[in-house]
Amino acid sequence: MKLSKVAMKRLVLLALAIACLVPAMPAAAEPERPSRTAALAALKKSDAEERRRGARGLAIVGRMEDAPKLIAALRDADERVRAVAELALWAVWSRSGDARVDELFSKGVAEMGEQRFPEAIATFTRIIELKPGFAEGWNKRATAYFLAGEFRRSLRDCDEVIKRNPQHFGVLSGYGQIYLRLDQPEKALEYFRRALAVNPNLEGVQGLAEKLDSIIVRRRQRSI
């Protein structure tokens, strides 16, 4: 099912706005480096402030194996816990464990923020060569390809991310944005819903999914 040009333009503009959002990483300006064990324990506490403290701690010292606990915290009863857990996930995902790779990663993110997409793609390609198991290197190159209009290459990199990090709600949303640009609205909606199934706090993605669902329903009704 193809969308009208007006509907497609509106949805694409909204998708681009979402794609260009760069998550703000939690500040690491704490007086002492928190204990990972203490942060994990705090995340289980009944007190919301303790859970927030635990999520903030994992943003600084968390490892990839801690991601499932932070993903569970995306459904915490406390809104601030959910917000901190989301930022903590991005922080954990963005640490490669290699100082050289992390330095290149910061360089690539800066290049992408300055819309220097060829340079960003080259930087993230170097990261992938150095550490192919680092999912976020693939994700950032997928984002750079998307912003440069190279949608098929972006899709291929998304596939590599999902192999390494199946619950990466950012890349699931990215699939949706790409399929929207490729005029495959049903597939786009499928991936937006998958992203929301992992992280129900993605308000921009939720709004985009609702608009897309409404358009698809109206188009189907007209075709009856």
Rank of each mutant, 00 (worst) to 15 (best):
E129Q: 11
R193A: 09
D102M: 00
Q206D: 12
R36M: 11
K9Q: 14
E136W: 12
K131F: 09
V22Y: 10
F105M: 12
R36S: 01
E50K: 10
A197W: 04
A142V: 01
A7M: 04
G113C: 02
V161C: 03
D157H: 10
A88N: 04
S106C: 10
E111P: 02
L212N: 00
L11A: 00
D213G: 14
Y175K: 12
Q177E: 15
R156S: 11
A122K: 09
R153N: 15
Y145D: 03
M8F: 09
A48K: 08
Y145V: 03
L182D: 07
F134K: 04
W93F: 08
I71E: 15
A72M: 10
K211R: 12
A88M: 05
A73L: 02
F146K: 01
A42F: 14
R219W: 05
K211M: 14
G207H: 06
W138D: 00
A19E: 07
P185G: 06
L87R: 13
R164N: 08
K2Y: 09
V6E: 12
K69L: 12
K107L: 14
M8H: 11
S223G: 03
D213M: 04
I60L: 13
L155P: 07
R63W: 10
A142R: 02
V109D: 04
L89A: 02
E160D: 04
E210S: 15
E103Q: 12
N199A: 10
L208W: 07
F151D: 00
A48S: 15
F134H: 02
L70V: 03
V22L: 08
D213Q: 15
R222F: 04
K140N: 12
V101N: 01
A41C: 13
A28M: 11
I178M: 09
R181C: 14
Q184D: 13
S173H: 14
K2I: 10
A72Y: 08
E79A: 15
L43K: 02
I162C: 01
Q184R: 14
A42C: 05
G149T: 06
Y191P: 03
L208Y: 01
G97L: 03
I224M: 10
N139D: 06
L13R: 07
R141I: 03
A38G: 11
K44G: 08
R222W: 06
A99L: 08
A15G: 10
L87E: 14
V61M: 06
A195H: 02
M1D: 00
I216M: 05
C20A: 14
E103K: 13
L58A: 05
A28T: 15
T37I: 13
Y179M: 06
P166F: 10
V81Y: 06
A195K: 00
A209H: 03
V61Y: 02
V12Y: 00
R36T: 01
G204A: 07
E79I: 08
S46L: 08
P34Y: 05
N199T: 01
